[in-house]
Computed example of a mutant assay.
Amino acid sequence: MLVVDDEPQMTIIIEYALQTQGFTVLTASDGATALNLLRTHAVDLVVLDVMMPAMDGITLCGRIRSRSDVPVMLLTALSQHDDVIVGLENGADDYVTKPFHPREVALRAQALVRRHRRGSGAVMRVGRLVIDPVTQSATLGRHRLDLPFTEFKLLTHLASRRGVPQSWRDLLREVWGAADLLGGRDVVKSTVYRLRSRLAGAPGGSAYIHTLRGVGYLMPDLPVEARGVDPADEPDGPSAG
């Protein structure tokens, strides 16, 4: 695990709490050092303070997420709810507010690592949608979906619960790992909107996420379509020659 915090005393507390749970811990006091460690070491989780000089935790979280799906836990003050929302939208998986009990951080860390390892499973198919959790890739017909990490997690969760409505609280808990969050409903709504827009860019993509008024969101359990050339994937107009 990697702990990133510019306060040495806080780093020592978190490091000890994680070590008591059997984790090997690396530490960094700034974003540049953290990125270098991530290039040279395989880690199961990054515990990241939001308020840091030079490169703040939100920026670092985005940098990490652009190159890795390693789980990220944010450490924030109670007054930093807006930062938490931005962090979750940029791919953070969980957050803990200060002051906190060190054992809470360790237990949340264990849960995140377990969930991340469990998420590396079999390929899922819904209609013409194919999701591969191992390679973190998704295609709709012959169209590859270029999804940020959180949108991919959202798509994967909806596909794994296809046919079952998911409330925004369900999604906040399962996708973002947050039981409660100020503004959480808006976080979920905006992420669903972005994901739906990306799906709609491919033929037939608008059929994959439904909004159920007063209930939540649903991916219908569409029958898997046979592979092959789909007319919707063919370019418009007569063929050349």
Rank of each mutant, 00 (worst) to 15 (best):
M1Q: 00
V3K: 08
I12K: 12
I12P: 01
A17C: 06
Q19R: 15
Q19L: 04
T20H: 05
T20Q: 14
F23G: 06
V25H: 09
T40V: 06
V47T: 12
L48Y: 10
V50H: 03
M51C: 07
A54G: 01
D56I: 07
D56E: 09
L60Q: 11
L60H: 11
R65L: 06
D69I: 00
L78V: 09
H81N: 06
I85A: 15
V86W: 02
E89G: 15
K98M: 08
P99H: 07
H101A: 13
L107A: 02
A109P: 01
L112G: 06
R115Q: 10
R118F: 03
R118L: 08
G119P: 00
G119K: 05
S120H: 14
G121S: 14
R128N: 12
L129A: 13
V130A: 02
T139E: 13
G141A: 07
R142Q: 13
H143M: 10
R144V: 14
E151K: 05
H157T: 04
L158F: 04
S160C: 03
G163R: 05
V164K: 01
P165I: 00
Q166A: 15
Q166T: 02
Q166F: 01
S167C: 07
R169A: 06
W176P: 00
G177E: 07
V187E: 06
V188I: 14
T191A: 13
Y193C: 03
R194Q: 09
R194G: 00
R198D: 04
L199I: 11
A200P: 03
G201D: 14
G201F: 09
G204V: 05
G205H: 15
I209N: 03
L212E: 04
G214E: 01
V215R: 01
M219T: 05
P220S: 08
P223K: 14
E225L: 14
R227W: 07
D230E: 10
D230K: 08
D233Y: 11
S239M: 11
A240L: 12
